[in-house]
Computed example of a mutant assay.
Amino acid sequence: MGQDWIIHVLSDLRQFARQNELPMLSAQLDEALLTAAVEIAGRSEGTLATEGIQTGLQSSDL
């Protein structure tokens, strides 16, 4: 599972927010899910991409 657990936790929280009519929280969790997915993908590729800019960090630097 690696770091994918955080995606599952955020998804569960987003589902809770939607079911309990918390639209602002749901929107924030959408952003958090996207951020987590990008950062996790970046770690597996050896670099992080934020807003289209390569940081050049290696996973060993993190």
Rank of each mutant, 00 (worst) to 15 (best):
G2T: 11
Q54E: 01
S60H: 14
S44M: 09
T50V: 08
L34W: 15
L10R: 07
G56M: 06
W5E: 06
L33R: 15
L34H: 08
A37H: 12
E31T: 15
Q15H: 07
L33G: 12
D30T: 11
D12T: 08
M1N: 08
E51H: 08
V38H: 13
S60I: 10
Q19C: 03
G56Y: 03
E39N: 11
E21W: 10
L57E: 12
Q19A: 15
V38G: 01
L22Q: 11
E51L: 09
I7M: 06
D61A: 13
H8G: 04
M24S: 09
A32H: 12
G2R: 08
S11G: 13
P23S: 02
G56E: 03
E21M: 13
I7C: 05
T35E: 09
R18A: 02
I40A: 05
E21Y: 07
A41P: 00
T55L: 13
V9N: 03
T50L: 09
E45I: 01
I40W: 03
A37Q: 13
R43G: 14
E51G: 05
R18M: 08
M1G: 07
W5G: 00
A41K: 11
A41W: 03
P23T: 06
L10C: 06
D61G: 07
S26E: 14
L29D: 05
A41T: 13
E39Q: 12
L25Q: 05
Q58T: 14
T35W: 12
G46K: 04
E31A: 15
E21L: 13
R14S: 13
D30W: 03
H8T: 05
R14K: 15
